[in-house]
Design a binder for these strands. Structure first.
Lengths: 334, 334
DNA sequence: CTGTTAGCGCATTCAA
DNA sequence: TTGAATGCGCTAACAG
């Protein structure tokens, strides 16, 4: 292992100067700088992160906690976070909690003292717990906003209302009057918001009849499982909790001989790459997920790098857009 | 921050005993152990990883380097690796190289000195580079086996021959005689192996005519792009480089009015969750990807934990299985 | 079984 | 502009 001492010896300066050359290049003379950097290069020196962390009290690493990395939603978010971290010289450790609150709690507890900050996406934890955590370490929430005592916790959330409104408007304008919403897990914060937003968007439209099914497992299997029930509602348009559920519905319907969009229009959520995998390609509403990851990292790093910034104004809202593809059309070609 | 000193003070022992209680519980008396652990608990003490790493010369963290975390293939692998790491008390940092060799090279260079070991999946680097890397740090390769001087580098690979053979046999036995293989990027190690294996499997079967298309972009868009060309070959059965390509082919064919499996049988590769997203569900050949991640972590940690184990026998081959779903059938229902 | 002690490699005082 | 010296928190000898 190459250390500062080796570099110092090679370039004929002290270890302090080596360290300084790397951290504050402007504080050494041009001459020494080149000599030191040359030595660094020749020896292939890389500062030991553990030592540096110990001394500085910061690790240069942040953690991203997600429920399930296999879910395209979080995979894309992770990708965005990764890119931003690279750009800002931070390391990123990704933790998959397998959707379990205990694991999330445990991991977060461990992580907060070993990283410079946390991004917690779609948390399963209670408001109280999250407030505690944010109190102990820099923290950004994604898909969750705390109200009350924890409201100082910065967060990145999606403007579900706008997204839902666009989807409902789209279907309504096509002529649909019977609408079904296949909702996800009722404990999910996003689910609650989407469900409420859909109810509201529907209520404000004359003649639009809304039915909601809830607690669908948010996977394609979940979608398959409720496909029949969905048909039985007699709706002509269906909005699914996410693209995976939509894909499941679509697959099962196809097997049952129901055609989309001829017999039934279908809208997904999140606009993941799944939309392009199925036939017909799925109309979906969502944000650029990489951007979501990006934004969370940015918010967190700003927090860390200047902790004296005002705690207010630290929430970011991302507005989704409706991407119309081939799974929606006017009803009644039947 | 709570340190060993706080715990020591609280429990009336020395800092050495605190450390010992945590690392080698059997080497302290029952009495002290309970006292120390109680203090640890009350104070919420967690050993500082940076300090521990610095002192021990090990970080307790390994890195997993993948080309693209958004790819379901690597997402699933990551999940497996994550679970195994948790079980063995290691941290995992996942790095996405966005399919770029320079980034992979750079990241690996940085990572190898800051982690206890590396898992490099589907590397874009040259054999020479990989040999060098493995020389400098514990390293496990996934989907790549080095021959010659680097053959001591442990690896986890898939028995492509067996998988391909199963797929070809399945189609042949169904009665197909015109087979098309839509191959992936020619620089890919897996692609080369699959292509060769298919040629061989086809050659050994009387009357089977094989056509290969190569360098398809390994995404659903790539599949869509070659869909027409694939039809033009006149084949009655198609094997795609991976499930994404298969999904693309399927989607495009469906739009063109070609029915699967009635007009054409289709087999994917990797058996990812994409198989269940499309209609009809895709016959696919692949390994359990989580297991692949598991195996890689296990191999690496064994290497790390007992470095004196013989360097031989450190390769693991995982045998894929053919999962027959609804996208394959006898030809000529036409 | 337990305590004392000496660093791990680095960043940062403080003097020069 | 540079160098000498200190200690971050922890673990592993070693001594008792």
């Amino acid at each position: 292992m190459v250390t500062v001492h080796d570099v110092a010896a090679r370039s004929g300066v002290s270890i302090a100067t080596v360290s300084r050359t790397l951290r504050e290049p402007h504080r050494v003379s041009d001459d020494t700088r080149v000599r030191v950097l040359a030595a660094v290069d020749e020896l292939g020196y890389r500062p030991n992160r553990a030592a540096s962390s110990l001394r500085r009290g910061r690790t240069g690493v942040i953690a991203l906690v997600v429920p399930d990395i296999e879910n395209p939603y979080f995979a894309s978010m992770t990708k965005g976070a990764q890119v931003m971290c690279r750009a800002r010289g931070y390391g990123l450790v990704v933790v998959d909690t397998t959707e379990r609150a205990e694991i999330e709690d445990e991991e977060v507890r461990a992580l907060r003292s070993q990283t410079d900050g946390l991004i917690i996406a779609s948390s399963r934890l209670s408001d109280e717990r999250l407030t505690e955590i944010a109190d102990a370490a820099p923290c950004v929430l994604v898909n969750r906003r705390l109200t009350g005592p924890g409201e100082a916790v910065p967060s990145v959330t999606i403007d579900e209302e706008t997204g839902v409104e666009a989807a409902v408007a789209h279907l309504y304008d096509l002529g649909h009057r019977g609408l079904l919403y296949v909702g996800g897990p009722s404990r999910s914060w996003s689910q609650a918001r989407r469900s409420a937003a859909i109810a509201e968007a529907a209520a404000s439209r004359a003649g639009l009849h809304l039915v909601q099914v809830s607690d669908c497992v948010p996977t394609s299997e979940g979608g398959r499982a409720v496909a029949r029930e969905a048909l039985a509602t007699g709706a002509t348009a269906v909005i699914a909790y996410n693209d995976l559920v939509a894909a499941g519905l679509l697959a099962q319907w196809t097997e049952l001989g129901v055609r989309v969009p001829d017999d039934l229009s279908l809208v997904g959520f999140d606009d993941t790459f799944v939309t392009g995998l199925v036939t017909p390609p799925l109309t979906s509403v969502g944000v650029d997920l990489r951007e979501l990851g990006d934004a969370a990292v940015e918010l967190l790093l700003d927090r860390i790098d200047r902790p004296d910034a005002n705690a207010e104004g630290n929430d970011r809202t991302v507005v989704p857009r409706l991407v119309v593809r081939a799974s929606t059309a006017a009803p009644g070609a039947r």
